[in-house]
Each structure stands twice: as structure tokens, then as C-alpha cells.
Design a protein around this nucleic acid. Structure first.
Lengths: 250, 250
DNA sequence: GTTAGTTTTTCATCAGATGAAGTGATCGCC
DNA sequence: GGCGATCACTTCATCTGATGAAAAACTAAC
């Protein structure tokens, strides 16, 4: 059940035959999932190196490398003679691709879903506004292409989700802001993990099309106020859907 | 292609070597700064382990641990027999605290400053809106306290900057969204690095006080529309200031 | 009960050996 | 001469052993 892909994710290249066998990645995955999953609580010590070697069936080098990677993500802190302790949650790199996966992949809590939906409401309208301010012709074209793909896939749930993510990404890309785009990439990782929440009826998919079209049109016309408003409508509908879904099934 | 000389030069960088005696951290800092700084370009190979051992004066374990940490941050990728290469910028964990420091601390480019100012414009109004929706009494109190500190320090540039950062952080904290708060923590790292841009005259500091007060008041009254508008005014003023500063001094 | 000194634990670091997986060059064949 | 297969080489991957250092835990003296 281990998806080695999360290890050093986001790569454009799909040819990575050795990643599964990388011992240090194995350690990172095992410990990272336990920490973020909650079975290794902040403030407590993880097993000592020797025990991890025995438990995970790898050498000390692999354990040390893995622990150092997790320390780099803010999850662990090593202290001489005092063991390695799990750092408080406030220290974690919450927008690290791996940390996000460990959080959202197993079974996101209702609160995780709320956090994600709120984040979109907080972020996407503003991003659409800046996109309208900064978009060049090529960026507008890419948004229009993504919009066309959205219309074309409205009948297929799975492709529609991908097209939806691609549309929102195109909007973020139009803002010419690599930090903003990075944030959306992380959001999309989380969204993909909770996509069952967003898998709605085909009719529902089609209902979101006009909203997306208004966003694209506003950006095309560099109308930042309208772009923001249109995007707010889209993400607030998504948030309402998510809340309803949580209420119904949890 | 010889990087030895550059390595020595980089070693002269002021990073107190006493306090931070951890060898792997030394490796992470040295290589990370070079990569983000641009002297090790994406697609190129870094020196082989043996050379790094000689150049950095540490053992192989330290080099390997450091390289693995940077791989975990998306900066490097190791391939058997093919060396370790710098990954494309799109793969970097741009919102990692270290990566941000390496980017903004030496001398942020005008474009970096634009990216940061745009990010605030895109993000903070929406965050203030969600804060107005979600803030509880304690969060409102903390915002008011931060506002009071802002008024109290308006005459001292350095404390005022800290109070300013604390105020904006209190707003983000009120949104009860750890991802959003994490994003602001990273923004504040970058803001602290470019604070000379934000160090204005005392009179200018005082001009920003009414705007901040409007934000606090709107959140206190749970008026999310007004909170958003007030925050937009604040960050757009900051953006205009930054643009002007860049024009004047660069 | 406190304190000073000692022991133990645990990570930190280096070094060596072996292995694996690509890279590239050599060499034979046609 | 062109082409392909073999083979040596490069470089990271991994394990292991040894030594050191720092902090915690323990002990004994007062």
C-alpha cells in the first residue's frame, strides 16, 4: 500500500523504477505517515536508531537519512543523548507535498475538509483578481483551453475533476507568481485526495460551468473585480457542497 | 566547471559556525544557498560526494544526509551512477522556510519583491474575510491587542515592523485555519528579510494605522465584506510603497 | 535534601567495504 | 567504415564498525 510516488512528488518524469526500493524514502514514508497520522504524538520520542533499524529492516544510514529529511520538514528534532522527538504541529511544513499527502490521503477529518474549503475561499478569489491584473495573452489562452476542456468533460466525473483542477491551476498560473502557483499545486494535491467529496452528479457538474465561464471571461477582459466575484461564487459553492457532504456522510 | 574556489568563497558567508555545528546542516545551508542563489543551475550536476567531502570538510555521512534533506525539499535528485542533479525550479518547495530564506535573504530581486507584494494582495483580503467569519472572542481580543501594540510602537521603526507582522498574523490566526496560518508565517519570513523596503518614515507608519483599525473593527463586528475591503486597502498601499521603493533605489 | 561526580544512553561523525545501476568506451563483426 | 554487444568505470546506495560528544540518569557523599 506504500505509494513511493509521494516521496519526492511533483516530478514531471514518470520513469522512476528505483524510488520504491530507496531505503531512506521507505523510512521517511513510514515515520512521516505515523507522525502526521497521529500515532506518534508531538513531544514524544520515536524509537531509537537501533530499534528503527530492526523494525524497518534497513541499515543505520537509511534511518539517519530518513530522520534528517523529516527534520528538514519540521516533523522531527534530534537531540544528542536525548533521542529524537516529534516536534509540535506548529513547526511542521504543512505545505510540503509529503506532509499534505500524509494528512489528506488516509481519511481526512471533517475539519481537514473545512480547512481546505476555507483556504480556497480565502485564496482563490484574490488569486483570480491578481490573475486578471497580470494575465498576458498566452495565459488567457491557456485559461480558455482549460475552460473548453471543462465543458468537454462535463459528462465524465473523473476527467471532469482533472479538468477542473487544470482550470483553477491555469488561473493561478496567469498571476505570474510562483509562490501563488506553488500554493495551488499543494491545494490540488489535497483536493485530489478528497475528490470523493467533490464527485457529484453529472447534473451538478454542469451547474458549475457558468460560474467557471464567468471567471474566464472576467480575466480575459482584465476585469479584476468581476474575476474575483465570479471565483468567490465558484469556491463558495464548492465549500457549501463539501459541508453538505460532510454532514450527510460523517 | 571548477567549483572549488566558489565553495571557499561561500564558506566565508556569515553563518556562525559555532552555534550550528551540525555537519549535515552545514551541507544543507551551503548547497541550498548555492542552488537557490543560482550558482548551481537546474539541470546541472553538483560535485560528486567525494569532492563535496573534500570541499566542505565533512564526512560522507554528513554529505549524504544533507543531500537527502535537499532532495526532500525538491531541490535535488540523486541518480545512481549519474550523479546528483539540481531539479527544475517548478519542483522546489517554494514555501519551505529554508528555501524562502535562501531566496529573500541575500538580495531579493525587484521581481521577488513584486511576487511577495502580489501574494499579499491576493491572499490577505481573503484571509481577513474568513477571519471575520470564523473569529471567536479570544481571536478578536488578540487582534485588538496587536492593534494596540501597533499604535504604541508607531514612533519606532523596528518595533513597529514586528507589531505590524504580529497584527497580520493575529488576523490569519483568527481564521482558525492552520494552512492559512502557515502561509502567513512563510510570508512573514520573506517580509522580515525585505523589511528595509517597508521601513518608512514615522509619518508614513502613522498613515497606515487607520487602515489597520478598520480591519480590526470589521473583524470584531464579523463584517466579512468590510474586513476584506479594509485589508485590501492596507496591502495595496503596501504594494504601492514597495513598487515605489523598487523604482527609487534599484 | 542537595550537590558533585560518574555512568549510561543516544545521537554525531568518520571510514571502509560491498553492491547496483547506469555510462561510455572499446572491440569484434559484418 | 558502420554498427552493435560486451565490459570496465563511475557514482550513488547500503551496511557495518569504531569513536566521540553531550546530555540525561544515576549514585554517593555531605
Amino acid at each position: 500500500m506504500k505509494t513511493g510516488a509521494a516521496g519526492i512528488a511533483c516530478g514531471a518524469v514518470a520513469t522512476d523504477p528505483q524510488r520504491d526500493s530507496a531505503r531512506n524514502v521507505q523510512v521517511v514514508q513510514a515515520l512521516g505517515a505515523r507522525i502526521v497520522g497521529g500515532s506518534l504524538a508531538p513531544g514524544t520520542s520515536i524509537p531509537i536508531e537501533e530499534e528503527l533499524v530492526a523494525e524497518l529492516g534497513v541499515g543505520r544510514s537509511a534511518v539517519r537519512e530518513g530522520v534528517k529529511v523529516l527534520a528538514g520538514k519540521g516533523l522531527l528534532e534530534t537531540r544528542r543523548s536525548a533521542g529524537t522527538i516529534v516536534r509540535p504541529r506548529e513547526s511542521w511544513n504543512l505545505l510540503d507535498a509529503d506532509v499534505l499527502s500524509w494528512r489528506f490521503e488516509p481519511d481526512p477529518t471533517p475539519d481537514d475538509i473545512r480547512v481546505l474549503a476555507d483556504l480556497r475561499v480565502a485564496l482563490e478569489p484574490g488569486a483570480a483578481r491578481v490573475a486578471a491584473e497580470r494575465a498576458d495573452a498566452a495565459a488567457v489562452r491557456r485559461i480558455d483551453e482549460a475552460l473548453a476542456a471543462l465543458f468537454a468533460t462535463a459528462d465524465d466525473p473523473e476527467p471532469f475533476i482533472e479538468a477542473d483542477l487544470a482550470f483553477h491551476k491555469a488561473v493561478f498560473a496567469a498571476a505570474s507568481n510562483d509562490l501563488l502557483l506553488y500554493i495551488y499545486d499543494m491545494i490540488s494535491i489535497a483536493l485530489r485526495s478528497v475528490r470523493q467529496v467533490h464527485t457529484r452528479s453529472v447534473a451538478h457538474n454542469k451547474e458549475t460551468l457558468p460560474g467557471h465561464e464567468r471567471v474566464a471571461q472576467a480575466i480575459r477582459r482584465r476585469h479584476h473585480r468581476k474575476a474575483e466575484e465570479a471565483m468567490r461564487t465558484v469556491v463558495e459553492v464548492a465549500r457549501a457542497d463539501a459541508e453538505q457532504h460532510v454532514r450527510l456522510c460523517c
